[in-house]
Write a protein that binds this DNA or RNA. Structure first.
Lengths: 178, 178
DNA sequence: GGCTACATGTAATGCGTTACATGATTTC
DNA sequence: GAAATCATGTAACGCATTACATGTAGCC
């Protein structure tokens, strides 16, 4: 009963019916700061949820585009989701490649490290932009709780970028001292 | 070739020989802000690495305590690790239960949400304390790169705590307005 | 002409989690 | 007397990743 694609999909579908494609879109943008997943996780998850009676499929025939399968949540699904919310909050799960590299990569030269920092910064900036864009566009219509969550995401990326910048500066200074 | 227990264990062993138990200790404290893992991942990983010739086992017989298996990295292991460092930096992987709950839990009452925020805050504070403790104790002997990484970890937890506090305040204010 | 968006899936593989299993010693 | 520390492992299960597989429509 931990945070996995199943519950995120269910939560997304509790707002409105969606296709697997749309769910994946959410995974890579609006909610990417707390959950990410690939098609290989989306479609099998949907299939399972359907088997368990948590969601229902409706096929929409389209002529100019591929057909869609739109899923909507059932009462069973809502109950499962409610059960999830009753569990104690799980700790965040983080896996950070940059941090690992900086922590252990002592024998690398500073150029290499600066490169790693640069790569990571770009990644975080890209994500921050997505979230910031959402915030700027929708903050007036967004329910408060979503705004809260978004804020956490924005802060998270911002903090990471700041820390990375600071690290780069420290490395630069050290270089000049030599 | 993504961030997984294998490379973290190898990196740890590149510093000094260690037992599985010690590696697990690192997973839950000093490096927990970028990687976590259980015994169920540590021991099998070590076994695999040994089979691949990346590490070597030496059994230390102890009389008052259980025997230890101390592993040290081999040349092969160092090569594998070097190869890892050459890959492009992977994006951070985050899975956050609180954020998910705040984002979707619109129908919950504010008390429930405040509770979630409180739980999460405690988790982050506990981890922040560990890192802060490391920083205070060792920052003078620590190599610069490790300090950088630690700093990122500290900032991360601090940012999260701040954001959570702010969220709690927003909810409180909203309550009073009613 | 090529890329992006739309749209859905499967198969293989594997990494990791949880739970199980054991047991002495030290500290509160 | 209870709890934490030291110490190592296995087994089952499952979620997720990567790669594979296919095809149209619209835009630049």
């Amino acid at each position: 009963m931990q945070l996995q694609a199943k519950y995120v999909a269910l939560a997304l579908l509790s707002k409105r019916p969606m296709t697997g494609y749309e769910i994946k879109k959410n995974f890579e943008g609006p909610i990417s700061f707390f959950f990410e997943g690939s098609y290989g996780s989306v479609y099998p998850t949907l299939k399972n949820l359907e088997k368990e009676g948590c969601i229902e499929k409706r096929t929409i025939i389209q002529e100019d585009r591929p057909n869609k399968n739109e899923y909507s949540i059932t009462e069973v699904g809502r109950a499962v989701l409610a059960q999830y919310y009753e569990q104690p909050v799980e700790e965040d799960n983080v896996r950070s490649d940059v941090c690992m590299r900086l922590f252990f990569g002592g024998k690398m030269d500073e150029g290499e490290m600066l490169d790693w920092i640069g790569q990571s910064r770009k990644q975080h900036e890209a994500k921050l932009n997505i979230l910031q864009g959402m915030h700027d566009q929708y903050h007036q219509q967004m329910p408060k709780h979503q705004l809260l969550s978004l804020t956490i995401g924005i802060r998270y990326h911002q903090a990471k970028i700041d820390a990375l910048l600071e690290c780069a500066e420290m490395l630069d200074n050290h270089k000049e001292e030599k």
